[in-house]
């Protein structure tokens, strides 16, 4: 862009004059010759429009403030590079959803994270969703077998109180009974006890989920050994928050931590 004054048909207006026009300055700043060139020139007109848009952003930018990341972020960047060899290391610890290492990885997460993690966070490199169900994961730790029930719940003392329960059924057109689930308070602990029966489905991993009745959130409680009952620590507020739909899915061994979409049984906790 050249910076000469000229007749309307001549060279484009100088950048400074275009900026002055964009700022709405008067004839004492931008002469009539320049104005009529700009009015007749598509290029200059669009330049002025772009500068006006920038001006609007500059004004709006006054309200912006920046949030610096906490020091841990630079530490993580440094560590990521420090570990770098000729083979680039992954940027952050990633955790296989169903791996036996789940419990250790859960320790990496921030304990201040809420118990219920929005779905959108479940795939963060540091697996928040594992922290979300840290207790359950810890139970599931030993295995892919999840949480074998050690004793009979009826034997676990007089303090068992049932907070809610549901029958489980398959999801097809003629639902088959597939067992039951109970939320139980035992002393200071609240657990979801899942007693599946006749789950069918392909060989492989069974995962227990809680789906919110709002239909937009779910959490994984952990894995279930095929055909066996399991117990999962169950933060009581999950119930209040609407996590009432118990779902047992079949999970193929594909490393994808999200629900496979293949539900074997489901039921909604009453009470």
């Amino acid at each position: 862009m050249s910076a000469h004054d000229g007749p309307p048909s001549g060279p484009h207006a100088a950048e400074e004059l275009l900026a002055a026009l964009a700022m709405g300055e008067g004839p004492e700043e931008v002469d009539e010759t320049t104005r009529s060139h700009v009015a007749a020139c598509d290029f200059c007109t669009s330049e002025v429009a772009a500068l006006r848009e920038t001006l609007a952003l500059v004004v709006a930018a006054g309200a912006e403030t920046f949030t610096a990341p906490p020091a841990s972020v630079w530490a993580a960047v440094s560590a990521g590079l420090g570990a770098e060899t000729s083979e680039p290391a992954p940027p952050a610890p990633r955790v296989a959803a169903h791996g036996p290492s789940g419990a250790e990885s859960a320790q990496l997460t921030d304990p201040s994270d809420a118990v219920v993690t929005p779905l959108t966070r479940r795939r963060a490199p540091v697996p928040v969703w594992l922290a979300a169900t840290a207790a359950a994961v810890a139970l599931a730790a030993g295995v892919g077998i999840g949480t074998q029930v050690v004793g009979d719940p009826e034997e676990s003392g007089p303090s068992v109180q049932v907070l809610g329960s549901t029958e489980l059924a398959s999801l097809d057109d003629s639902p088959q009974a597939r067992g039951s689930a109970q939320v139980q308070r035992r002393d200071d602990r609240v657990v979801l006890r899942v007693e599946p029966s006749d789950l069918d489905g392909p060989e492989g991993t069974r995962e227990v989920w809680l789906i919110n009745t709002d239909g937009s959130r779910m959490v994984s409680l952990g894995l279930l050994a095929a055909g066996d009952a399991g117990e999962f620590d169950f933060p009581e507020r999950l119930l209040e928050q609407g996590y009432r739909i118990v779902d047992i899915s079949y999970e193929p061994d594909d490393g994808d931590p999200t629900h496979s979409g293949q539900s074997l049984a489901r039921g909604t906790i009453d009470g």
Binding site: V73, D110, D113, P125, V126
Partner: peptide, 11 residues
Amino acid sequence: THHEAEDVTQM
């Protein structure tokens, strides 16, 4: 979310 923002910044 702070958590995701920090992840993204790191990455």
